[in-house]
C-alpha cells in the first residue's frame, strides 16, 4: 500500500511572533513540524509496520529550509521525502492543495496512493481546509479530524469527534484523512533512526500552479486584548455578580 503524508512547518512554541513597523517579524521564529502532522506521520508509519509492502512518502510544499523537517520525518519512519519547491510558501489553502495534487500526480502517475494523511490543521494559520480541498481535487472521500483508524481488507473504520459524541465511519480506499490529537502517540527519533534517515532520499520537485488564490490576507496585527481586571475579595461578591449579570436561569 502506498501512503502519502503531507507535512508543513509551523513556528515552535518558543517562537516570538513580533511586529516591526506593522509587518510580521519572522526573525525570532524557529520552525518545526506541525504537531497535527506528527499524528498523521505516526499513523502512516504504524500502518506500514502492520501491512507488508507498504511505502510511506512525505510531501511538503515549502522553501528549501524545510529539508531539516523532512530529514526528521525520514528518521521517524517515512521511506521517501519530496520537497515541492516554491518561491514563496503559499498561504492560501486552495493553492497549497493544488500544489500537493500536482506533486502527487508527478510522483504516482496513474496509480494514486491508497491513503493520503494530513494533520487536521496547522497551528500557525489554522485554516483546517487543505485536507478536504485535496480530497475534492483528487476525487477521493475525505474525513477530517480522525481520532481512531482501523484497516480491515479494503475497508477503513474511522472515528471522529463531533459535538456531543463520536461518529463511526466506514469507507474504502482511496481516501484523504486528517489526523486529530488523540489518534496516536507519536514516537521519538533515535540515534540509529537518524543515521538510517541519511541514506533515504529527499527529492526536489518543481511544479507550477496557474490559478489565483481564493483568499488574501489583507492585514495582520498583534492581538491586543488587555482588559482592566476588577479584583474581588469574597466568594459571596462573586455570586452577587453572577446574579446581577443574569447568569442564574
Amino acid at each position: 500500500m502506498n501512503i502519502a503524508v503531507c507535512l508543513c512547518q509551523v513556528p515552535d512554541s518558543a517562537s516570538v511572533i513580533g511586529f516591526v513597523d506593522g509587518a510580521l517579524d519572522r526573525s525570532r521564529i524557529n520552525e518545526v513540524m506541525n504537531p497535527y502532522d506528527e499524528y498523521a506521520l505516526e499513523e502512516a508509519v504504524c500502518l506500514k509496520e502492520r501491512i507488508a509492502g507498504s511505502f510511506v512518502t512525505v510531501f511538503s510544499v515549502a522553501p528549501p529550509s524545510a529539508k531539516e523537517m523532512l530529514r526528521k520525518a525520514l528518521a521517524l519512519g517515512a521511506d521517501r521525502a519530496v520537497l515541492v519547491n516554491t518561491i514563496t510558501e503559499p498561504s492560501d489553502p486552495y493553492l497549497i492543495a493544488l500544489f500537493l495534487r500536482k506533486a502527487l500526480i508527478a510522483c504516482y502517475g496513474e496509480v494514486m496512493p491508497e491513503l493520503v494523511l494530513c494533520g487536521k490543521r496547522s497551528t500557525d494559520f489554522q485554516h483546517a481546509e487543505v485536507p478536504s480541498m485535496l480530497g475534492e481535487l483528487l476525487g477521493m472521500a475525505s474525513v477530517s479530524g480522525v481520532t481512531s483508524l482501523d484497516v480491515s481488507g479494503d475497508n477503513l473504520h474511522l472515528e471522529r469527534e463531533i459535538e456531543g459524541g463520536t461518529e463511526e465511519i466506514t469507507l474504502h480506499f482511496p481516501a484523504v484523512l486528517s489526523a486529530e490529537k488523540g489518534l496516536n502517540q507519536p514516537r521519538k527519533t533515535t540515534v540509529r533512526s537518524v543515521m538510517e534517515a541519511r541514506k533515504k532520499p529527499i527529492d526536489l520537485l518543481t511544479v507550477t500552479v496557474e490559478e489565483t488564490p481564493f483568499v488574501f490576507m489583507s492585514s495582520i496585527e498583534p492581538y491586543e486584548r488587555k482588559k482592566v481586571c476588577h479584583f474581588i475579595e469574597s466568594e459571596k461578591e462573586l455570586v452577587e455578580l453572577f446574579a446581577k449579570e443574569g447568569f442564574f436561569l
Binding site: 486552495y94 483546517a128 478536504s132 479530524g145 463531533i162
Partner: peptide, 22 residues
C-alpha cells in the same frame, strides 16, 4: 462553525470555486 462545516465547506469551496472564509 462545527465539525460538519469543517468537513464539508472546504470541499464545497473547491467545487463551487468559492472563497472560503473562517
Amino acid at each position: 462553525d462545527s465539525s460538519l462545516s469543517r468537513d464539508l465547506a472546504p470541499r464545497l469551496s473547491v467545487d463551487l470555486q468559492a472563497s472560503l472564509l473562517t
